[in-house]
Write a protein that binds this DNA or RNA. Structure first.
Length: 352
DNA sequence: TAAGCGTGGTT
DNA sequence: TAACCAAGCTT
């Protein structure tokens, strides 16, 4: 088997050990492959399995997605993270309806012009849904290539990335079975050529793997250069009315949790009380400090001080003004909530 | 070019 | 625990 070219060895391995039966593999339309590829960006399969079925059930095709409100799309995306993906998915669906008769263009250049679709996602859509010959380069493929060719340097470095794309292209079969090879090389990376303790004994590429030959499998791929993560502190102001409704506001599109609903933020507890006084003309009757919550983001740590301000003035139960609303669990068609905000709400709302 | 973008799994 | 990473893309 080792005299076979790489793609044939991957295909043979895939035929016996490949991963099958994932929801986007069973009913493999271009739309479902697209949605799954977007969800799978920087996100593990196990996580996507919880989000993909409800999403495609509510939005079974491009038209359904394009017709929906962005808020509803974000609601089904809540907790998945990287919310720009959801905004781009929605925006692209509307472009497809307006310019492509509701279909994804099965064209490498045109796909990459659509929001949220880069080179790898375009390649994956075309390879998996259309069997066209285009390489992909995700984390799994990078790891396989880095080890097989003993590539030095961090894969995120531009020079290394360029090299990896070249290799990914060379490894892709020219004549047939591009879809299966693409699935196979990813499965190989996720099931055999794993980040820690790879199962080299089960690898069809072991015979000519340079990292294995040098007994340096653990040296590849090189880790990202380290930086200390800065700590940001913020205060979540939970303004609560006597009926239990809390004030939420839509966050700006840019920045963390863009376009999602969250609590107003202040720089300190004192600022929060001053802000409450200015906004509602009263000092809160009760102020309750909740435990600090630390959150880890890719580029910083966030320390949240949640403070609950109970105000006395009765106001209309449902106030929806563009980007501000009083929220009481359940009945409202609330848009997307960041996971930490959803967690806080669960502990605060009376009927949840 | 490199920083910014979320959350959960793993060690 | 804290660091690292995951079916990357955008600006």
């Amino acid at each position: 088997m080792n005299e076979l070219v790489i793609s044939d060895r991957v295909l043979a391995w895939f035929a016996h050990h490949g991963r099958r039966g994932l929801p986007w593999q069973v009913l493999r339309t271009a739309y479902r492959v697209w949605v799954s590829e977007i969800m799978l960006q920087q996100t593990q399969v196990q996580t996507v399995l919880r989000y993909f079925p409800p999403f495609v059930e509510r939005f079974p095709n491009v038209t359904a997605l394009a017709r929906a409100d962005l808020d509803e799309v974000l609601r089904l995306w809540s907790g998945l993270g990287y919310y720009a993906r959801a905004r781009n998915l929605h925006r692209t669906a509307r472009i497809l309806v307006n310019e492509y008769d509701g279909n994804l263009p099965l064209d490498h250049e045109r796909l990459q012009c659509l929001p949220g679709i880069g080179r790898s996602t375009a390649g994956a859509i075309l390879a998996l849904a259309s069997d066209q010959r285009h390489p992909i380069l995700d984390g799994n493929v990078k790891r396989v290539l880095c080890r097989h060719q003993a590539i030095e340097g961090w894969p995120g470095h531009a020079r290394v990335t360029k090299h990896l794309w070249q290799l990914a292209d060379e490894y892709t079969p020219h004549q047939h079975s591009v879809a299966e090879y693409t699935q196979g090389i990813m499965d190989l990376g996720s099931m055999v050529c794993t980040r820690v303790r790879p199962r080299c004994g089960a690898c069809p590429l072991r015979a000519d793997c340079r990292a294995h030959a040098q007994a340096r499998v653990n040296d590849f791929p090189e880790a990202r250069p380290r930086r200390g993560l800065p700590l940001r502190r913020t205060t979540f102001v939970v303004v609560r009315r006597p009926d239990g409704c809390v004030l939420l506001e839509r966050r700006p599109t840019v920045g963390v949790w863009g376009g999602l609903w969250s609590f107003p933020e202040c720089s300190s507890e004192k600022d929060a009380k001053d802000w409450c006084l200015r906004r509602f003309g009263q000092r809160p009757a009760v102020s309750l400090r909740l435990p600090l919550k630390r959150h880890r983001f890719s580029h910083f740590h966030l320390e949240i001080s949640p403070i609950v301000l109970d105000i006395a003035a009765p106001q209309r139960c449902v106030m929806e003004v563009d980007s501000v609303l009083w929220y009481k669990g359940g009945e409202s068609k609330i848009g997307g909530l960041p996971a930490p905000v959803a967690g806080l709400l669960n502990g605060l709302l009376p009927n949840s």
